[in-house]
Design a protein around this nucleic acid. Sequence first.
DNA 1: GCCGTTTTCGGCCCGACTGTTTTCAGTCG
Length: 580
Amino acid sequence: MANTPEELAQVLEEIALLLEIKGENPFKIRAYRNGAESVRQFDGDIVSLAKRNELKGIKGIGSALQDKLHELASTGQLAFLTELKAEFPPGLFDLFGLQGLGPKKIRALYDKLSIDSITKLKQACTDGSVAGLPGFGKKSVEKLLEAIELKEQFADFYRLGEVAPLAETIKHTLQQHPDSLRVEIAGSYRRGKEVLHDLDFLVATSQPAALTRFFTELPEVTSIIACGDTKASVRLENGLQCDLRAVSNEQFPFALQYFTGSKEHNVALRSRALQYGWSLNEYGFTPKNKTTPAPPAARDESQIYRILELERIPPELRENKGEIEAADAGSLPRLVELDNLRGTFHNHTTESDGRNSLEEMAEAARDLGLQYLGIADHSKGQFQANGLYPDRLLRQLDHIKSLNQQWDDFKIFAGTEVDILKDGSLDFTDGLLEQLDYCVASIHNSTQLSEKEMTARIIAAMENPHVTMIGHLTGRLLLQRKSYALNIDKVIDCAAKTGTIIELNCNPRRLDMDWRHWHKARDKGVITSINPDAHHTDHLQYLAFGVKVARKGWLRREDVLNTKSLDEISTWLAKPKGQR
DNA sequence: GCCGTTTTCGGCCCGACTGTTTTCAGTCG
């Protein structure tokens, strides 16, 4: 039953996909996609309107779509879709997830070679039959195999940002149980890893069996893998595995430490415990022999570390990448926190491909308690994203100036996300960029250049005095697309030399630049800006993921540009790049 | 399939890149 606008929209998207495989008129296909977009953006109860067949007059939804949405909302079925689906095997849709495969090629593979699954495609690539098809050759086969490999490699992984709402909902429900004393999500989720294999819930209780049973009966659970007195494993609808461990309140800190990991961190920590004469496991310290004095109890995790004469190590740092040595020396960084953020750059509006207007974005930022919001809509090179030509950009600049007059505690900064062209030049002239408050420069095309060319391209952009920061540096899409060929070390050196910010893009699909590079970048003096790349007011919430990744990269408040207050950032932006 | 109209049919967003071709189709952003 279609009960939400999103469900209605997804049905229209599904139809569009099927029509695409059928080779229908592209404008008809676009009409379905536009219809889906209209449904999503409609300000009002569109589901009820659809049920009552009162959709007339909504832009993008003509008579054909009105009828279909009415049928869908009132009966929960759509005969048109059912018939359409019956024409193709279900496995065919998996092929859409592969880079380089669009509807035409999928159709050709299906028609000529009866390929209707990734397994069959892999086989046909290997045995040479794909290379024999018109339009396919040696290179396409290589690329397809590579795409399949990438997909298989990440088959059981989930992006942090997409799992987080579900994880927090389950945590909240567990907390509501009368027998649960403490609840935490441990594992890689707690460590802020960008992709996760599973979720590890931990609960302190005197009634473990009641909790494990309660866990398996949660509405989000679709199948039970195992359920015992202290441990249960389940699978959710999206395939994600979730484990629950129920322990006593005394064991809880030890279990939390143990299940948070990482494995490498724990190995190092256990070997340190042994030097004190104790073995350490998920239940507590145990003296190695009778002469060893009993260790004191630990009420929380920080006491476990204190007993081992270490500063408390934040979960994000527990990867055995120098954090134990730093904790021993008392030199752990004081990591940036979400509360430290005062604003953000790199956000879009309806002027290019965002969903909300300038006014709505500003209002949402103010609601979050931010003091400033940087707007960076796409430049003209991004046609598909409705990129701005100079005249529109200048009009937006005027609009921002006039809006800014209403506040004295908040400011919109006028920027752009300008394309870095193939040769490293920018999609706008210096004269135009000079008129803006700041500039994000990003790569959106020619992504297959060699490492040497790509590195030179980004360095050229960084050397431009008007480029404040580089957007989504490596172009990676988590679980989907690798980063461009790029010499990160050279880019980091150049960022430090030129005073160019490297953005930490906290869109859950990107989380780019990767946390593994930030510690060394920081030590070379590179500053970041934690940017949500928001295309909707809701996306400002992504800042929380960005802060997790920044913490994972050992970043402190002073390493993050957008922790500066409105006054500080205004002064900073007013200075020439070389003098900041 | 939608929209808009000098009102019922014609236009609908475009360019770069890649790999396949030898002039272009398909994909992507």
